[in-house]
């Protein structure tokens, strides 16, 4: 029995479809969710989200946020969600480079934190893309 997976960001609903199972990066480690999971709310760590549908697995790179599981729906609230297909490696590399360059300059604490967060996210995206390529 499939259930609904929703990935929403403040900007738009990124994904909404019936899936057979999903693995989420929780703050306390990976969290696998299958149908009939008990209602649960937990926090999401930046990393890879992986769902399976009809025997096929698809990945998303996600930022931090919340996971909300009800009987029939798994909702992921995050500030960033990019699917495997959308990640352009060159763009990510460039973003990483820019962030590293920015770190070299003198910055305030807040800016450093912001830049480091963006590096984490870019690395997660890049990692996902590279992994994909190995599989193929």
């Amino acid at each position: 029995m499939p259930f609904t997976l929703e990935i929403v960001t403040p900007e738009k609903s990124v994904f909404s479809d019936e899936v057979d199972g999903v693995v989420l990066p929780g703050v306390e480690g990976e969290l696998g969710v299958l149908p009939q999971h008990t209602p649960l709310v937990t926090t999401l760590a930046p990393g890879e989200l992986r769902y399976s549908k009809d025997g096929k697995e698809t990945d998303f790179a996600v930022g931090e946020g919340l996971i909300e599981i009800t009987g029939t729906t798994v909702s992921v609230l995050t500030d960033l969600a990019v699917s495997d297909v959308e990640i352009d490696e060159a763009v990510v590399e460039e973003a990483l480079q820019r962030a590293q360059d920015a770190l070299q300059e003198k910055l305030g604490e807040e800016e450093i934190a912001a830049v480091e967060a963006s590096i984490q996210k870019s690395l997660a995206q890049l990692h996902l893309k590279r992994k994909r390529r190995r599989h193929l």
């Binding site: 929780g26 306390e28 209602p39 709310v41 937990t42 931090e64 919340l66 909300e68 009800t70 729906t73």
Partner: peptide, 22 residues
């Protein structure tokens, strides 16, 4: 969106931690 139904949500690791994030 629909609620958790009877029994409410389970919060992991704890309601306070989730609140910190939310």
């Amino acid at each position: 969106p629909e609620g958790p139904g009877e029994g409410g949500f389970l919060f992991e690791p704890s309601p306070e931690k989730v609140l910190d994030m939310a």
